[in-house]
């Protein structure tokens, strides 16, 4: 008997929690949605996507700013570059990556370009 009451209480609590989460997600204004990155595996290396919510805002198949089609040589280099873009966006700054940014991140670049 009391186990049925406990069971129904647990169900109600669980559902209230779920209800709250749904409300929270829905009330979040889209412009405050958090930026996220996704690393993508490419033929000769790696690139990244920047998303806001489910919306893709930047697709970077090549190292930004560099001439030619130079992909990131490792997942780590793509990730730290994407992280810098995210931090710029979250500070409300431009997502532009400058040559000095890439140098600070020690991004590998092909010789001869």
């Amino acid at each position: 008997m009391s186990s049925t009451v406990k069971y129904s209480l647990a169900i109600v609590l669980f559902l209230v929690l779920g209800f709250g989460i749904v409300m929270y997600i829905q009330s979040e204004p889209s412009q405050n949605q958090i930026f996220e990155s996704q690393i993508v595996s490419l033929d000769d290396g790696f690139g990244y996507k920047i998303l806001r919510g489910e919306k893709i805002v930047i697709v970077q198949e090549f190292v930004p700013g560099l001439p030619g089609k130079q992909q990131f040589v490792s997942k780590e280099e793509a990730q730290k570059t994407a992280n810098l873009v995210l931090s710029k966006l979250e500070e409300g700054k431009s997502p532009i990556l400058l040559p000095t940014d890439l140098a600070k991140l020690n991004i590998s670049t092909q010789v001869g370009h």
Binding site: I56, V59, G65
Partner: peptide
């Protein structure tokens, strides 16, 4: 800096 806007995909990429 120089950017490309993909009209179909509605996203940007930073180019050379």
């Amino acid at each position: 800096s120089f950017w490309a806007y993909d009209i179909e995909g509605d996203y940007w990429s930073q180019k050379a």
